[in-house]
Amino acid sequence: MRLRKKYWARPEMEISNIVITDQYEYKGKWNEEFKNNNPIHLELGCGMGGFISEKSTQNLDINFVGIDLKDEVLVFALRKVIEVRGIQDKQDINLNVRLMPLNISFIDDVFEKDEISRIYINFCNPWPKGRHNKRRLTHVKFLTNYKKFLKLGSEVWFKTDDTELFEHSVEYFKTCGFEILYSTHDLHNSGFEENVVTEYEAKFHAIGKKAMFLRAKLIVEN
Rank of each mutant, 00 (worst) to 15 (best):
Q91N: 15
A77E: 04
V84F: 04
D68V: 12
I93P: 00
K80S: 02
N37S: 14
T57N: 14
L44G: 06
K90C: 01
D108N: 15
G49P: 01
R98A: 06
I107V: 13
G50K: 09
F64Q: 03
D71I: 06
N63M: 05
N103K: 11
E72K: 03
F106N: 12
C46M: 06
F64R: 01
F106C: 08
I52A: 04
C46L: 14
E43F: 09
K55V: 08
V65L: 08
V73N: 10
G47V: 10
K80Q: 08
H41Y: 11
N96I: 00
T57C: 12
F106W: 15
L102V: 13
P39F: 12
M48W: 09
N103Q: 15
D109K: 15
K80N: 07
P39N: 15
V84Q: 05
L42A: 07
I82G: 00
D71A: 10
F76A: 05
E54M: 05
D108E: 15
D108G: 09
P101L: 06
D108L: 07
M48L: 12
G47M: 07
S56T: 11
Q88P: 02
L102F: 08
F64T: 04
T57Q: 15
M100N: 04
P101M: 10
N103M: 10
L99D: 12
V75A: 02
P101D: 15
S53L: 02
H41L: 06
D92Y: 04
S56L: 04
I62V: 02
I87A: 01
L74K: 00
N96L: 01
S56V: 06
E43Q: 14
C46G: 07
P39G: 13
F51G: 09
I87P: 00
Q88T: 01
F64L: 03
I104R: 09
G45N: 10
K55R: 13
E54D: 11
L44F: 13
P39Q: 13
L102M: 15
L99H: 02
L99M: 08
I40T: 06
F51D: 10
N103R: 10
E83V: 00
K70G: 14
K55Q: 07
R79E: 14
V81T: 09
I82E: 02
M48A: 07
